[in-house]
Design a protein around this nucleic acid. Sequence first.
DNA 1: ACCTGAACACCGTTCAAGT
DNA 2: ACCTGAACACCGTTCAAGT
Lengths: 254, 254
Amino acid sequence: MATRTRRPERREEPLSRERIVEAAVELLDGAGEGGLTFRALTERLATGPGAIYWHVANKGELLVAATDAVVAAALAAGPAEAADAAESPDSPDSPHSPHSPHSPQEKIDSIALGLFDAIDEHPWLATQLATQLARGPRQSVTLRIFESIGRQVRALGVPEGSQFTATSALVHYILGAAGQNAANSANARTFGPEVTRAEYLAAASQAWKELDPDDYPFTRAVADQLRDHDDQAEFLAGIALILAGITAVHPATR
Amino acid sequence: MATRTRRPERREEPLSRERIVEAAVELLDGAGEGGLTFRALTERLATGPGAIYWHVANKGELLVAATDAVVAAALAAGPAEAADAAESPDSPDSPHSPHSPHSPQEKIDSIALGLFDAIDEHPWLATQLATQLARGPRQSVTLRIFESIGRQVRALGVPEGSQFTATSALVHYILGAAGQNAANSANARTFGPEVTRAEYLAAASQAWKELDPDDYPFTRAVADQLRDHDDQAEFLAGIALILAGITAVHPATR
DNA sequence: ACCTGAACACCGTTCAAGT
DNA sequence: ACCTGAACACCGTTCAAGT
């Protein structure tokens, strides 16, 4: 973690929207949602609040921009190297991934894993994406995700009239499941670095087993699955399940 | 809307956690997420902040409790009458719904529609549920939802080892899609009461059509589906799709 | 055009003091 | 045990003033 190379200590170059967004991402990464304040930002950028407000309308816009930057990088990079937030605009089609996937299913998996990694690396993304999704998919970030999944749904041969529903189902699942996974990582970290993720999941699983048998029979029954599960495998299994549903409902598909 | 009968103007009865949570829900309903402040709360309850802090640890706990109360009511009531927040603990099994559903699929639809209605009536629920989901499903609200969907997944005959994944997929979809729907309603209201929901969707659809054809070919293509869609039908179609996936992957099912 | 930084209104939370 | 309310630290945002 923390592959970031250059600290923004060179106060020379002028303030810009990108520098501000970059600093915002760093603050969010370092201290979570509560870490992004205008005081912290002014200190890090060695300016006054007025300077920031000249480049950015308000905190909400800053949050949206930070989310957008990280998601755009994740969508462009794919699974493994979702690390760099902004940087090189590059050619957006550069064939980065090890063995670039070709079937629509593989591409969906690839997009999903890219987001999965990004959320895992920037836990604040989960809440932020959920919030922005809940505000409607007209905003750029969620629209970007919707678009890239939707293209593959179309490539899958899903009939026009069902593409909206199918894409929504996939997007909701991907964001929700990836967020939950990040929450597990984040919660595990809460207990200190000596607690491994496996130990945390074991403890959480144990807590589920101690729920009231009358109120939570199902949750108790699947407690073992919480303990034993392989994050990525489980995540991909969920996607496969939804894709199977799409194929089942629309035999023309695939 | 606003079926609430009794205003908490009788200052007689002592403060209690329930009264505080009830007031919090009213503030959230009336003025959105920003409407819940301790000042507004003290004014409405005619006390000082210290009194509230005696019953409730902090604002976060209050938010969780408000969410919990509304969701619990929605899960207990089912589709149509998710109105009352707390009130009568009743028998939790009381056969309320018009013609109570019996197959697991019908029950899942019923639970989902209940949440759908609750989120539509309390738009702040969408963000709140998403946030609490993203913090992991060990919290009571999301666990409650997970449990009630999970029971039906089990009743469906899904093999043990896949119940966790299947339930997660359903819960994520339901919460995400319901939230998005509420966002549409809320955004429509933003433009004033003279703008109908249909007009708003038409405008949003138009905005999608005007996106850059190179960047958003898919989104442009499904813009009509955004305009024409029937909320509930679309929502249920998504659930059906995931259920079809579950059935397809696990032939034993159903 | 871009930046400074004091000031404002408001927020969640605390705590000594009352009953 | 339960409540009061002044006070504290901190927040997002504004704006007259500088360059």
